[in-house]
Design a binder for these strands. Sequence first.
DNA 1: CGGGATCCGTTACGATACTG
DNA 2: CAGTATCGTAACGGATCCCG
Lengths: 226, 226
Amino acid sequence: MASARRYKILCPIARALDAVGDRWDLLILRDLHAGPARFKDLQTGLPGIATNLLADRLVKLADIDLIEKIETQLGVTVYALTPRGAKTRNLLFELSQFGTQFPPDPDVKPTTSYRTVAVTMAAMLERGATADDRLRLQLNIGGEPYCITVRGTQTAMALGPCENPEAVLSTTYDALLAVGDGALPPDAFSREHLTLIDGDPDALQRFLTLFVRALTHLGGAEDGED
Amino acid sequence: MASARRYKILCPIARALDAVGDRWDLLILRDLHAGPARFKDLQTGLPGIATNLLADRLVKLADIDLIEKIETQLGVTVYALTPRGAKTRNLLFELSQFGTQFPPDPDVKPTTSYRTVAVTMAAMLERGATADDRLRLQLNIGGEPYCITVRGTQTAMALGPCENPEAVLSTTYDALLAVGDGALPPDAFSREHLTLIDGDPDALQRFLTLFVRALTHLGGAEDGED
DNA sequence: CGGGATCCGTTACGATACTG
DNA sequence: CAGTATCGTAACGGATCCCG
């Protein structure tokens, strides 16, 4: 019963799609890249998913060792990426980069979870980062704390506060999406939608620099490739 | 009617999946990375696809400017990647790399087209290539000629013969898949399943070197990431 | 209240037949 | 060869209900 609508083609791409090509699969993994999540967290982060589908997907993804179900000592069950599941990072990065070129749907559903930005943002920062960039700051998005870490071209962004952030910033989800889509210029973003709550102002500037580089790197070159 | 089961979530990953997340989408793009193809070519390269689905997908992918329908002067209609569609390359690379870790399905469908290897192989070679690698050779897979080009870490593999190949090699589809899956060691591959038809034996060696590097790069490090 | 399971209407997919 | 048309089936979407 586990394999119904599979390609069964001798090709690694087809195998990858057999594993994570079903509806919601990749979006579930995307949210888990922000850190472990409960059933309800995923449900609110994935507007429109039916509970039975979410349950089915979680079982399937656990079966192929991409995620695992964990019972905490408080009796709370959370889902988390396995090391194997964490390797979907680059795949999601590419998906994110590819997706930015399409216009947002005119009637998008309102999102109440900010987990979505974890991979998107990390992908952006990684595009803008160079080998000697180092940055660790906490970004509060609509009140939710996220910890951003940049170590050269290795970037990460996880739900939760930082341990020793260089700075603590605050912004909104909408502003972040707007700047990511290119609708809002980075300087307007920093002036009107980004506030330094605590720490080093220089860290904020370096954070913005990565944004600018990511955006110019995106819209600038690479048009006549092939 | 064009947008029925879409996510409509404000997230580039969801937008990417709304564009190319439907069944067969990415496999069609994969085959087109080997060069323009006719309806029938795609049909044989995608065992199991229904003709109406293939027709639907081709229209949809053309609508969002990833592929285009071309009428040649001989009245033959072919489908080809647009510049925008060619940018699915890295995405397919990541998908291919991610897919290699899953075991092949026990009852895979027999494939009569070798277009599938175009992206897979290019992805492998690109993983193994370093900045100063240069290679241009023709590889006949089960009689079908493919032209492999390596310029540093930019690699390509297209259906059709090379113009000025350094060498012309011949192998089989099964052997190629076996070595790509790690089931067949590269030295056994070269001894038993790879023949130099014409040209420089050194080019064959450099070709193998890229294979070995790609395989060790894959299975060697990167286990404890995150 | 979180974490599902069950049921049912709808949609997309798969297979085949048919046409220009 | 390049599709279109038809139809049965499996997956999805939405709601409701159940259990700890």
